[in-house]
Design a protein around this nucleic acid. Structure first.
Length: 870
RNA sequence: GGGAGUUUAGCUCAGCUGGUUCAGAGCAUCUGCCUUACAAGCAGAGGGUCACUGGUUCGAACCCAGUAAUUCCCA
């Protein structure tokens, strides 16, 4: 069978993936083997694969495939997140295009549309993951709104409410006036905006004097109920206890004094609008100020504002500035760099707003989660993220979990007409609960809370919920805690921290042992990849172009944990080239199948090559295992890359390759297959398709295991460091000879004679490989230097290759002189150290010996060159 | 404003306990090759004031202090 010289992934990948699915190799059920579990960070159900997913899931697949081969019961649980805000926004948008307004629909009708949308687009992303080679147990696919999962979320809410950890309260929250919902702090993005600072004049009551207050939001004067100064600010001590008149509004408000005010900022006077600013709210509570809510939910001015009613907030800002100016109450305006909060979802300016919301009291819940990260029970990779984790957890605030949306888990609170409420699993339970309290409401009297829960309030239960852990311990006991979590640092607080909290609260144990934080995928210019910038390549197209394996390698080549990944297609190209390189090594070895000559003995050159290659494999394997333990994925990949490309292809195969037209002995052939097999195994997690395809082509491999993905990971054995040392010497020697060939333009076909100066301790272990590889006809020992000839030193032994054709003697001598000058300078610096008494007295013996060896090596090299020069 | 990080070759990054793994890797570049697995390749070569300034030490890319640039998180 003719194997093409180019590997074509497109033909292969779908076929291989179908085989894996058919043989159910990714399926996991509890058994005697130890479990190794990963739960996927569930992507948005209607999302499409982007480069961040590619990175993330490549790493997860790599870990799970390695674990599977190492004999664990590997279980990777896939699934999707209902993503309430994002999905609802998409459905609203789609309906709008059809001319339907959300407000015209009933809740049930809207939910029908949302489900339809979910069924239509849901799962696309999971199919895309299959293209990448993701070895998930697809039978376990979960969705955060599956009936069972939904129930878990509701039960969790009820439980926390019973424990007194969930409460309803009026708080200053982040309000999104476009989506008409509350947002958690984490959903607000702060941006620096060039804005104006307005200096407003407040008349001091009963005088003709004015007080100037600086503000970035002049429209909020409609809600002013005080002016605040710092008690230490001597400019304003005379105003303590006085009252001032709010400009335009003409309301009299008190002047209060509080340390909170920054003396240096603006004029040192702060207008206090308790309903529209977090800190003002705090001042309002402290000094029992009146609260005037001057804004409607959609960002227009409310009746309570008294002026500009119904007008949009930013229009009013401009208008009020003009009106103030006209009234002579605007002292001046200044340019000002301001940080403004924007909604992550709708990108409109967030309005701090007082409203009645549901909260989780996080203070006590978060304690074990903080402790067990700090003491490394749960390990973070890279550990630097422990710092920000601690910072956040130590200052944790209550979690606002209600959202004014329909798509999601509806809050299980039922309100009676008198405003009292019960938290219950369903309306019947609520009726019963009212009854026990002596309130006899019927089901038709009660109304369920209109709001749904924050999406993260469902995904924080993910590692438990995917195993139905709230209702059955069977799978939970086996799979939980999971092994590793692979995710982006951006959602450390949204998700990772809260899963840890939930894990300790509901299972009494951590949800995962290790957390690997990936970086952010950026484009060449360092910009974050985003849809709006259009700078993100389509992963599916990339995989078509370079193969899934090529893209996987491309993603992992430069992505140490926690570092951003500056993505460049050329990395995928490197991955594709690597695939092709291996493919061709396979073609070579496969071609030997027909050249086996049973009568041949294994030549010495092949014997040493096999011995070295096996030894080298062991050496690198140890380093790789160490790298895996530390999650240094890129490093492990590079080690694998060099092991295969440099050691195996460039050196081993060249040494073992039979001479032109000759057959191959069966021992070398079989040894080569064994080596190749091990290499493919350690490569498999990185390039699953390519390795499986080759495995399927080789009967002797298939006799060990039907598929490489379920074969046994090679066990680390001991390696002999001396063999590698000898090899490196041999490598130098070969390079020197190649250089001589190049200088003289001697093709490899032409045999060479090489001589070396007689020495007691010349190492000859690789001589057979050397003469085979470099086409050396004679390797002679001589007792006198040869002239004229090229000469070079390898590990203290001087080698000679006689000049053949015309050689530029002067150029050679000039080069030698350069070398001589360098060596003499080097020697000088070494000797300076050795004559420094303090160095000799303080440095450890090993370092001293090293310096002495440097000295003697330099001396002998200098002597040799001088002799050559004549 | 508070906190954390980063700065080593053209690019992306290693460099773990201060000293033979000490200035490295991959890619890119340059030179020569269609050598019977592979031009998506082979062979060879060049390339660095380890951000800057000072300190500690026999010895600093590594420890300390300061400066600069830059990234992220929080408010």
């Amino acid at each position: 069978m003719e194997i093409p010289s180019k590997y074509s992934p497109n033909e292969t990948e779908d076929r291989i993936y179908a085989m894996w699915l058919e043989k159910k190799v990714f399926k996991s059920t509890p058994n005697d083997k130890p479990a190794y579990t990963i739960v996927i960070p569930p992507p948005n159900v209607t999302g499409v694969l982007h480069m961040g997913h590619m990175l993330n899931n490549t790493i997860q697949d790599l870990l799970i495939r390695r674990a599977r081969m190492r004999g664990f019961n590997a279980c990777w649980v896939p699934g999707t997140d209902h993503a309430s805000i994002a999905t609802e926004a998409k459905v609203v948008q789609k309906l709008r295009k059809e001319g339907i307004k959300k407000s015209d629909l009933s809740r049930d009708a809207f939910m029908e549309h949302a489900w339809e949308w979910t069924h239509k687009h849901g799962g696309i992303i999971l199919d895309q993951l299959k293209k990448l080679g993701a070895s998930c147990d697809w039978d376990r696919t979960r969705f955060t709104m599956d009936p069972k999962y939904y129930e878990s979320v509701i039960d969790c809410f009820i439980d926390l409410h019973k424990k007194g950890k969930i409460y309803r309260g009026e708080r200053m929250i982040n309000w999104d006036p476009a989506a008409l919902t509350a947002l958690s702090d984490e959903e607000v993005i702060h941006k620096e905006i060039q804005s104006k600072l307005y200096f407003l004049k407040y008349q001091i009551e009963g005088t003709s004097e004015f007080l100037t207050v600086a503000t970035t939001r002049p429209e909020t004067i409609l809600g002013d109920t005080a002016v605040c100064v710092n008690p230490r600010d001597e400019r304003y001590t005379h105003l303590h206890g006085k009252r001032v008149i709010v400009p335009l509004v003409n309301r009299s408000v008190p002047v209060i004094a509080d340390e909170y005010v920054e003396i240096e900022f603006g004029t040192g006077c702060l207008k206090v609008t308790p309903a529209h600013d977090q800190n003002d709210f705090m001042l309002g509570e402290k000094y029992q100020l009146e609260v005037i809510n001057m804004m409607n939910a959609d960002g227009t001015i409310s009746e309570a504002g008294g002026m500009y009613v119904g007008q949009e907030r930013f229009a009013v800002r401009d208008q009020i500035a003009k009106d103030l100016d006209a009234a002579g109450l605007l002292a001046k305006t200044e340019e000002h760099l301001n940080k403004v909060g924007y909604s992550e979802r709708t990108d409109v300016v967030i309005e701090p707003r007082l409203s009645l919301q549901w909260f989780v009291d996080m203070k006590d819940l978060s304690k074990p989660a903080l402790e067990n990260v700090m003491n490394d029970t749960i390990r973070f990779f890279p550990p630097k993220f422990k710092n920000s984790y601690r910072n956040w957890m130590e200052n944790i605030k209550d979690w606002c979990i209600s959202r004014q949306l329909w798509w999601g888990h509806r809050i299980p609170a039922f309100y009676a007409p008198d405003g009292s409420f019960e938290v219950a699993k369903n309306i019947e339970d609520a009726v019963a609960q009212f009854q026990t309290k002596g309130a006899s409401w019927s089901a038709s009297d009660l109304k369920q809370d209109e709001d749904v829960l924050d999406t993260w309030f469902s995904s924080w239960l993910w590692p438990i919920g995917v195993f139905d852990g709230f209702y059955s311990k069977e799978e939970l006991d086996y799979y939980y805690p999971t092994a590793d979590l692979v995710t982006a640092p951006e959602i450390m607080f949204f998700w990772v921290a809260r899963m840890i909290v939930a894990g300790y609260e509901y299972v009494g144990n951590f949800p995962f042992k290790n957390v690997y934080y990936t970086g952010i995928v950026r484009d060449k210019q360092g910009r974050k990849m985003s849809k709006s910038l259009g700078n993100s390549p389509d992963p599916i197209e990339l995989m078509q172009q370079f193969g899934a394996d090529g893209v996987r390698v491309g993603m992992l080549l430069s992505s140490p944990a926690g570092n951003d990944l500056p993505f460049d297609e050329s990395l995928c190209e490197q991955g594709r080239n690597f695939a092709n390189k291996i493919w061709n090594a396979f073609r070579l070895v496969k071609s030997w199948e027909e050249k086996i000559d049973g009568s041949l003995e294994q030549p010495e050159s092949s014997a040493i090559a096999v011995k070295w290659m096996n030894n080298r494999f062991e050496q690198v394997l140890v380093e790789m295992e160490d790298g895996y333990d530390k999650f240094r994925i890129s490093e492990v990949l590079m080690q694998t890359y060099k092991l295969i490309w440099d050691d195996f292809c460039a050196w081993y195969l060249e040494m073992a390759k039979p001479s032109y037209g000759k057959g191959i002995d069966s021992k070398t052939y079989n040894d080569t297959l064994d080596i190749f097999q091990n290499l493919l195994k350690v490569l498999h997690p990185f390039m699953p398709f390519l390795t499986e395809e080759m495995w399927q082509h080789m009967d002797s491999w298939k006799s060990e295991s039907e598929m490489i993905c379920i074969s046994n990971w090679p066990a680390a054995k001991t390696f002999e460091p001396n063999i590698q040392k000898d090899f490196e010497e041999f490598e130098q020697l070969v390079t020197e000879v190649r250089n001589v060939r190049k200088k003289q333009n001697l093709p490899n076909k032409e045999a060479l004679v090489v001589s070396f100066m007689k020495t007691a301790n010349r190492n000859s272990s690789f001589d057979a490989a050397f003469t085979h590889l470099c086409n050396i006809s004679e390797l002679n020992e001589v007792s006198e230097k040869m002239n004229p000839s090229f000469s070079f030193m390898v590990n203290g032994v001087e080698y000679f290759i006689p000049y053949t054709a015309s050689v530029d003697v002067e150029a050679e001598q000039a080069k030698m002189k350069e070398e001589l000058a360098y060596l003499e300078g080097f020697l000088k610096s070494v000797e300076a150290k050795l004559t420094n008494e303090r160095f000799v007295n303080n440095a450890p013996a090993a370092v001293l010996d090293g310096e002495r060896k440097k000295q003697s090596d330099a001396l002998s090299k200098i002597a040799a060159i001088k002799e050559q020069l004549g």
